[in-house]
Every structure is written in C-alpha cells, then in structure tokens.
C-alpha cells in the first residue's frame, strides 16, 4: 500500500467511521448529563419559587 492508499485509509477511518461513532458517544453523554442535571435545577428552581411565595405570604401575616 503506497502513501496515497494510506491517506485514503485514514480519511475513511476518521471521517466515515470514527466521527459518527464519537458523535453518538457525545450525544449519549450529553443527554445523560442534561437529564442528570435537570432534576436538581428544576428542584432548585421550584424551591426558589416556593421560597419567594412563602416569603410573600409571610409578610402578609
């Protein structure tokens, strides 16, 4: 296999095979990270909103 053959082989490996594979892995990791973070964020958001509401009603008493 000459140099040009090796080059096209690298192209096939990186662009056509590794890039889709890595993209899929990143997609899984990314979605997992987002799903993992959302509950805490939503909880914190709810707590913060609840605290605001509670504080508002407390002032009225």
């Amino acid at each position: 296999m000459d140099f040009l053959g090796i080059s096209t082989w690298i192209w096939d490996l990186l662009v056509l095979q590794l890039l889709p594979f890595v993209s899929m892995v990143l997609l899984i990791i990314g979605v997992f990270g987002v799903v993992n973070r959302l509950p805490d964020t939503i909880t914190n958001y709810a707590k913060a909103q609840a605290a605001k509401i509670s504080k508002a009603f407390g002032k009225k008493r």
Binding site: F3, L4, I6, S7, T8, I10, W11, L14
Partner: peptide, 11 residues
Amino acid sequence: ILLGILIVGAA
C-alpha cells in the same frame, strides 16, 4: 504524496 498529505490534513 502531496495529494496524500492534503487528504490527511483535510481528514
């Protein structure tokens, strides 16, 4: 050889 280097760089 030059074409091969360009292909690797683009890849």
